[in-house]
């Protein structure tokens, strides 16, 4: 088997893990699965690409602008589409429709503003997408950086959940009423989680853009595979999402090489189904559920 599949699979897997982590950040304090997450990623890529490629500003400026812009939009989404629904019933499921509506609104608006043409984005200097050989694998410096940044982000976000605010988020996730009785304000945590989840989504889009181009098509494809990574890893579990992202990225790369590129998506979902049949709560999910 071709060793080049390994960096390709890990790079794609890192992106899926980041999308899944965005899902998880929003999910923890709200139990809401944000169907607009893919569009937030896509919008991050478009804003970043416009600032970098079209306005010619440095990578950092593009990243900062996109993260701020998408984080604020996610906060607006929380206020408009999630908080009112949860206020009526903390266990209702109307958010399926409202977050889907937000997804369509963002998708349509971005299509109207930017048009269908993908924007090419260069990686920040000195990184490059030119491949070289490392241990017999064709890999680019940008891929290595992307894999490293993903690891840092996942462990950084996990570190946040060890702070008092992070523990409060986990408390709300486990028992909302009990958290309310301890003086924890879930609304505040949910606002901050949407803001943070939006920023992570935008960063995911910016990181993906040099490899996949910034285009309106970025949202749906990353949404599906990010969802698969979140489900396989155990909803709410970021380390699970990282491992699951790698598994799905590798399955996709191997599937494309061994079978045919047309079977990529089928491979991803076959792997997801098999893992969920064996562990219905995901790789890391069941261990937590068993302690209850």
């Amino acid at each position: 088997m071709d060793l080049d599949l390994i960096p390709a699979g890990l790079t794609a897997g890192s992106l899926y893990a980041l999308v899944a982590m965005g899902f998880n950040i929003l999910y923890r304090p709200t139990n809401v699965f944000n169907f607009a997450q893919g569009d937030l990623v896509m919008l991050g890529a478009m804003v970043g690409a416009s600032v970098m490629a079209l306005a010619g500003l440095p990578w950092l400026a593009g990243a900062a602008a996109a993260m701020l812009c998408v984080a604020v939009l996610a906060l607006v989404e929380e206020r408009v589409a999630v908080a009112p629904v949860l206020k009526r019933s903390a266990h209702g499921h109307s958010w399926v429709i409202t977050t889907l509506a937000i997804s369509m609104i963002i998708g349509n608006l971005v299509g109207r503003i930017w048009g269908p043409d993908p924007i090419a984005v260069k990686p920040p200097a000195p990184l490059s997408t030119e491949t070289f050989y490392l241990l017999g694998m064709a890999v680019s410096s940008y891929q290595l950086a992307l894999i490293a940044v993903t690891l840092l982000l996942v462990f950084g976000v996990e570190g946040f959940y060890r702070t008092r605010s992070g523990k409060a988020v986990m408390a709300v996730a486990e028992d909302r009423d009990a958290a309310l009785l301890r003086g924890i304000d879930p609304d505040r945590l949910s606002r901050w989680s949407f803001f943070l989840g939006g920023a992570v989504a935008a960063l995911t889009g910016i990181l993906a853009a040099p490899l996949l181009y910034a285009s309106t098509g970025l949202g749906p494809s990353l949404l599906l595979k990010g969802f698969a990574a979140a489900a396989v890893g155990g909803i709410g579990n970021n380390r699970g999402a990282l491992l699951a992202g790698y598994i799905i990225g590798m399955a996709e790369a191997v599937g494309a090489a061994v079978l045919s590129p047309g079977y990529q998506l089928a491979m991803v979902f076959a792997v997801m189904l098999v893992i969920l049949l064996i562990r219905p709560h995901g790789l890391f999910g069941s261990a937590e559920a068993r302690t209850v």
């Binding site: 008092r164 605010s165 523990k167 409060a168 986990m170 408390a171 486990e174 028992d175 009423d177 009990a178 958290a179 009785l181 301890r182 003086g183 924890i184 937590e288 302690t291 209850v292």
Partner: peptide
């Protein structure tokens, strides 16, 4: 809660996945 009213709900509603110390810390949020 900020006013000084605390309830210990029926059925020992703890945060069962978190440690004893973390449960106490959650009383301080």
């Amino acid at each position: 809660v900020d006013l000084g009213i605390m309830q210990v709900a029926e059925g020992r509603r703890l945060f069962r996945r978190q440690s004893v110390h973390d449960n106490l810390e959650l009383g301080l949020v």
